[in-house]
Design a protein around this nucleic acid. Structure first.
Length: 899
RNA sequence: GGGAGCAUAGCUCAGCUGGUUCAGAGCAUCUGCCUUACAAGCAGAGGGUCCGCGGUUCGAAUCCGUGUGCUCCCA
């Protein structure tokens, strides 16, 4: 019977087939039962986006953990979903409307716009889900959640009204970060600071009522001359002698010629710049605080879109950066520009639009963070929530929470949960989930305050125009995906919450992770997850961030198309040490694909054995023991590695685990075991050995399955005829056969295996070094104190090195190639002339090394303090090393003597 | 300016509680092989002052200090 398996593994169809099968069997769907739950919620990707490699890494890690748990007796539940990404999505929809339909947002009503937005979401929001499927993720598709789903919307509103009632949300005018491109407020976390080279302009401010002589002006250095028109004071340090004579004077603001006071405050550093500071309370946080302290007026000279406002008086309507040029030009013209110098500084950029953020006084909604932060910090510090890798992120987490600032949550956008605040026509407001509740609250308020509102109807209430920050919905994610906010006592929530592991990028530790912990502690008095695993950032192989501009971010679907999903998963995981950034190189996908082929070809070999038929085992015990030696050895190896992998999982060292499995399969199983077990060409294989091989192969596929689910499932089914429902995806670890082997026996057989491997390699090496072709016949003469050990492995040894015979000898054999390994020696008798020079060289090299080694050991042993202080087993080990080395030296010297 | 992390083979990284499983893996390189599972492969090999300096210790890649160089976070 000839095999019908393709030359190489072809992932496309196989992946399609198995993913569909798994879905049909509903393996990924979870409902509460009496098993322990293992719950993971996906960090919701942005609905506008596609999966980039950072996501790919995250999803792969989650899938590995979830599949592992599913195969370890847990009721695994992985909830997929996406978030509505307020700013990004709104921008995309606005752009689409203008480009494709010629519609301006300003011409639409809120309802019309939202209609288009949902339409857009329906059209493009599915792309990421398709990618998650292609990657093989075992998510429960019945549980897909979107942060704008009805129940989710309600949850966000509920939390808002609740926190407001608790006094944890307030509305007020504060200095906030304004994104002039998106035209909305941002939270502090959404601003990214970058070092840039700016200019420092030295501007002359005249002292009022002076005669205009040179001594009567103050020079002020500023980076932002376009804000001059918003100046409402000039500030100097009270101890600064240079300005003492000007106390009580007024200063003229250039260009607008406004008189402003000269104020004195310690805040100003006399050593910086000229020692004088222009104070622009509307456009700088520090100036704002100074303004509050000194009761200065605030003049906002900018419009929401970053152009100069009427209040600026000059260059009204001009963009702020253009206005800067103009202001500088005019100052120069007026002789008010002393000089300019380059100056390196930091500027805030909007994380979403990359626009330079404008500090601005604005009335917004805020969450008071102090109280919420306490429990969230405690949960991590006391180990209730475990961070991995801990040492890296604990300090960061703690610092942020200990210094947390209030969170600006209102956004001047339409796409998102609309703030449930309602205003009457006098500007009073109440917070309520619905208009009806709001009206009722107003009626009570009016009554208490004796306000006559008899003419005022419910229709006269107006709702706040703004929506909430997307993170204000995301922070409820682990709860509300199970309806934990809207329906706190439901069965799912009680069963699945708290979740088991959160896998996410370290960049959103504050945005999301910390806030989820706050929400969890506030609304369930319980951590939202037991473990947080932070993955590193994916960079290109030159260490640069993946970005659209650089074009260095590969397309996931295209990668899967080229290499197969298993290979991509392998490629990204093998390169991702825990918590470190990973430099992604497509060559690691190559490695993954090659691994697929290795597995595939191993399968072909086993199928070939099947085709050649199996033979009854020998009745002779010795023969049988030799025949089955590979199986005993591999069983011990497998058991060892299974335990290692288990440990690595518990430490979240998935990259290491994968490497370990890879090496077990490629080196131990394919390179050694299969070669040892391989029957002579065309001959049947021993039935027990064959059965063991199948069992090993199955167990290997099971071990690898969480990492590479498709090919392992395929091979599992190719290996044996399976009953309906017998699939690897749901198989349980330990159920596919256990190794019954004692520790001592295991150590023994592993040692034999090592001896065998050592000698195979040594002899092959000797062949190469002596110019013997692999097929040239050789005879082996072994000189050893441990003949029985060699007897056990002799058959395999002969086979693997293509030797004709093995015999024991007490003395050197003339005219042979001497090979030393460990304490033993072997003489290779070949039919070709022996190159003694090369051999001598090799032996001398070995000898030198061994002598050096022996010396270092002897130095240690002759040191009394070592013998006294070191642990006895360490000293014993050193003694053994010394004996070993002496034996080896003796063996080498003897060999040299025969040459 | 404050804090954290990293520095080991040409490249990317392992190396836990100090002691040959301590100098490792995978790519890359070199040599020989189209050997009936696999050339996307097989069999071998070479390659490192474990960033510099000091300390603790019988013993340091490993612990401590310090310098240098990168990276990230925060102001």
């Amino acid at each position: 019977m000839s095999t019908t398996l393709s030359k190489n593994f072809e992932p496309g169809q196989v992946e399609e087939k198995w993913y569909r099968h798994w879905l049909n069997r509903r393996y990924f769907n979870s409902t509460p039962d009496d098993r322990k739950p293992f719950t993971v919620v996906i960090p919701p990707p942005n609905v506008t986006g596609v999966l980039h490699l950072g996501h790919t890494l995250n999803e792969t890690v989650q899938d590995v953990l979830v599949r592992k748990a599913r195969m370890s007796g847990y009721n695994a539940c992985w909830v997929p979903g996406s978030d509505h990404a307020s700013i990004a999505t709104e921008a995309k929809v606005v752009q689409m409307l203008e480009k494709e339909r010629g519609i301006k947002k300003a011409d639409l009503s809120r309802e019309e716009f939202l209609g288009y937005a949902f339409e857009w979401k329906e059209k493009y929001g599915g792309i990421i889900y398709h990618q998650i499927q292609k990657l093989g993720c075992s998510v429960d598709w019945d549980r897909v959640t979107f942060t704008m789903d009805d129940h989710y919307y309600k949850a966000v509103i509920k939390v808002f009204t609740d926190l407001y009632a608790k006094g944890l949300i307030y509305r007020g005018a504060r200095m906030i970060n304004w994104d002039p491109a998106a035209q909305t407020a941002l939270s502090d976390e959404e601003v990214e600071y970058k070092d840039i080279e700016g200019k420092l302009y030295y501007v002359k401010y005249k002292v009022a009522d002076s005669d205009g002589s040179a001594s009567d002006y103050i020079i002020i250095a500023t980076q932002r001359p376009e804000t001059i028109m918003g100046d409402t004071a000039v500030c100097v340090n009270p101890t600064d002698e240079r300005f003492a004579h000007l106390r009580g004077k007024k200063i003229m603001v250039p260009l607008v010629n406004r008189e402003v006071p000269l104020i004195f405050d310690e805040y100003v550093d006399p050593a910086f710049g000229t020692g004088a500071l222009k104070v622009t309370p509307a456009h700088d946080i520090n100036d704002y605080n100074l303004g509050l302290k000194h009761h200065l007026p605030t003049i906002d000279t900018l419009n929401p879109d970053g152009t100069l406002s009427e209040a600026a008086e000059v260059f009204v309507g001009m963009d702020r950066f253009e206005a800067r040029e103009k202001v500088v030009a005019q100052l120069r013209e007026l002789g008010l520009l002393e000089k300019e110098e380059t100056y390196s500084t930091r500027l805030g950029f909007s994380q979403r639009t990359n626009a330079v953020v404008e500090p601005r006084i604005s009335t917004q909604w805020f969450v008071k963070m102090k109280d919420l932060a306490g429990d969230a910090l405690e949960a991590v510090v006391n180990g209730d929530v475990k961070i991995h890798p801990e040492e890296r992120f604990m300090a960061t987490y703690r610092y942020w929470l200990e210094n947390v600032k209030d969170w600006c949550i209102s956004r001047q956008l339409w796409w998102g949960q609309r703030i449930p605040a309602w205003y009457d026509k006098d500007g009073r407001f109440v917070v309520a989930a619905t208009r009806e509740e709001a009206f009722e609250l107003f009626r009570q308020q009016w009554a208490t305050n004796g306000i006559d509102h008899s003419q005022f109807t419910i229709e006269d209430l107006t709702q706040d125009e703004d929506v909430l920050d997307t993170w204000f919905s995301s922070w409820l994610w682990p709860m509300e995906v199970f309806n934990g906010i809207t329906d706190p006592e439901n069965k799912d929530f009680n069963y699945y919450y708290p979740t088991s592991v959160l896998v996410t990028g370290q960049d959103i530790i504050f945005f999301w992770v910390a806030r989820m912990i706050m929400a969890g502690m506030e609304y369930k008095s319980e951590r939202p997850f037991e473990h947080v695993y932070f993955t590193g950032m994916v960079r290109d192989k030159q260490g640069r961030k993946m970005s659209k501009q650089l074009g260095n971010s590969p397309d996931l679907l295209e990668l899967i198309e080229r290499f197969g999903a298993d290979a991509v998963r392998f490629g990204i995981l093998i390169a991702a040490p825990a918590g470190n950034d990973l430099l992604f190189d497509e060559s690691s996908c190559d490695q993954g694909r090659n691994f697929n082929n290795k597995l595939w070809n191993a399968l072909k070999l086993v199928k070939l054995w099947e085709a050649n038929g199996v033979a009854q085992s020998s009745n002779d015990a010795t023969t049988l023991e030799q025949t089955l030696f590979p199986a005993r050895w591999f069983a011990a190896r497998l058991a060892t590695v299974q335990a290692e992998v288990e440990k690595l999982y518990s430490e979240f060292r998935l990259s290491e685990a994968l490497k370990t499995i890879y090496s077990l399969i490629w080196d131990d199983f394919c390179s050694w075991y299969l070669e040892w077990a391989k029957p002579p060409f065309g001959q049947p294989i021993d039935v027990q050995l064959y059965e063991s091989t199948l069992s090993f192969f199955e167990q290997l596929m099971q071990l690898l399955h969480p990492f590479m689910p498709f090919i392992t499932e395929e091979i599992y089914h190719q290996l044996r005829q399976r009953n309906e429902g017998d699939d690897l995806t749901i198989s349980q670890f330990g159920a596919l056969g256990k190794t019954q082997i004692s520790g001592a026996e295991s150590a023994d057989v592993l040692a034999q295996g090592e001896l065998l491997k050592t000698w195979i390699t040594a002899i092959r090496d000797a062949r190469v070094k002596n110019g013997l072709k692999p097929k040239d016949a050789i005879q082996l003469h072994v000189q050893t104190a441990n003949e029985s050990m060699f007897t056990k492995i002799s058959a395999l040894l002969l086979k693997q090195v293509a030797a004709g015979s093995l015999s024991f000898t007490q003395d050197a054999v003339a005219n042979t190639i001497a090979v030393v390994a460990g304490r033993d020696k072997m003489y290779l008798q070949a039919e070709v002339e022996v190159n003694t020079t090369a051999q001598k060289e090799q032996l001398l090299k070995d000898l030198e090394y061994q002598k050096g080694f022996l010396q270092s050991v002897e130095v240690k042993l002759s040191n009394e303090r070592f013998v006294q202080n070191a642990k006895p087993e360490v000293v014993d080990a050193e003694r053994k090393k010394r004996d070993d080395a002496m034996q080896k030296i003796k063996a080498i010297e003897e060999s040299l003597a025969t040459l």
